[in-house]
């Protein structure tokens, strides 16, 4: 469904060029949920924005291919790309639930793009809006309500309804559970699973929350410093993690069933302004070797789909 090959995305800043996405390759199967997990500054959002080609003006795709259902969208003209956005590929942006128009009812809000972009009649657009809101679990009683009358979970559902109204094949959701309560988080995740299972939508879930993603995703990539450190079946990545960064993340998450002391990862996230060659995690890694400083590593295939980008596993490299 989605294949990314050697993608490089750079931002031009006053301090120099920032490699937010640095030679990333990925494959995502149709009808699956793919988790993209990383901390702030890891490049996960930039990767998501690249797939829709809506990067900010100072950023650009330097090289690499993004194939969506066989079409290389990096080669499409901007005019052609517009037919993809919202239709084949849609996105739920981070914090979108707080950018709903406070002066419009839910129904008007969801129907508006259909009226403006598709010249649809209001009555038909309203009906489509109602159907879509029903698909995300919202009843007719909320149609005439304004955003301030909705809970966070309801607003997030409205935003998801707006994203899927064009029947996209691929939905990118950026931090869809951040700022929601735990009970609501669980329900939003169930909704994403239903969208996958009932409508066959392929979903990329971008999040900093490893346990939440691990629970719903079929496969998952851990990102650090603009690169993927580990990718594979979601359950395997968390139960048989290989990369020192993934292992560090797991050790920093409290689990009430264990009395183990949690530990942070020493040091600060790497700066991506003119980064040095070698492993991005070098400065914070407790298993680092001299070779990690310079060696531009390749993935070591561990077990089928499970790949780790780390010199410790060089032996298993194919």
């Amino acid at each position: 469904m989605l294949e990314i090959r050697d993608l490089i995305v750079k931002y031009k800043t006053s301090k120099g060029s920032v490699s937010a996405v640095d030679r990333i390759s990925l494959e995502i199967d149709k009808g699956t949920i793919f988790g993209l997990v990383g901390e702030s500054g890891s490049g996960k959002t930039t990767l998501g924005l690249s797939i829709l080609r809506i990067l900010s003006p100072n950023a650009s795709i330097e090289s690499g291919d993004i194939l969506v259902s066989g079409t290389n969208i990096t080669k499409l003209k901007e005019r052609e790309m517009r037919n993809w956005r919202g239709k084949k590929i849609a996105m739920v942006f981070q914090g979108a639930m707080s950018s709903l128009n406070p002066l419009m009812t839910v129904e008007e809000q969801v129907a508006e793009p259909l009226i403006i972009h598709e010249n649809m009649e209001r009555s038909l657009a309203n009906r489509k809006a109602r159907d879509n809101l029903a698909n995300v679990g919202l009843g007719e009683n909320i149609l005439k309500r304004y955003p301030h009358e909705l809970s966070g979970g309801m607003k997030q559902r409205v935003v998801i309804a707006m994203a899927i109204i064009g029947h996209p094949e691929l939905l990118i959701a950026d931090e869809p559970t951040t700022a929601l309560d735990v009970v609501t988080q669980h329900r939003i995740m169930k909704l994403f699973k239903a969208l996958r299972d009932e409508y066959g939508i392929t979903i990329i879930m971008i999040s900093h929350d490893l346990p939440i993603v691990a629970e719903v995703a079929n496969s998952m990539a851990i990102m650090y410093g603009g690169k993927i450190s580990e990718v594979g079946n979601a359950r395997e990545v968390v139960t048989k993690s290989k990369h020192p960064y993934t292992q560090g993340l797991i050790k920093s998450i409290p689990n009430p069933k264990s009395s183990e002391v949690i530990r942070g990862i020493p040091g600060e996230p790497v700066s991506l302004v003119n980064p040095s060659p070698g492993c991005r995690f070098y400065d914070r890694c407790s298993f680092r070797r001299d070779i990690c400083k310079t060696y531009d590593y390749n993935p070591a295939v561990l077990d089928g789909q499970h790949k780790v980008y780390c010199n410790l596993y060089e032996v298993g490299k194919q």
């Binding site: 901390e39 702030s40 900093h208 929350d209 490893l210 560090g248 993340l249 050790k251 920093s252 998450i253 409290p254 949690i262 530990r263 942070g264 990862i265 996230p269």
Partner: peptide, 8 residues
């Protein structure tokens, strides 16, 4: 971020 949360 989670990696810093534990330290706090």
């Amino acid at each position: 971020d989670v990696s810093i949360r534990a330290d706090f």
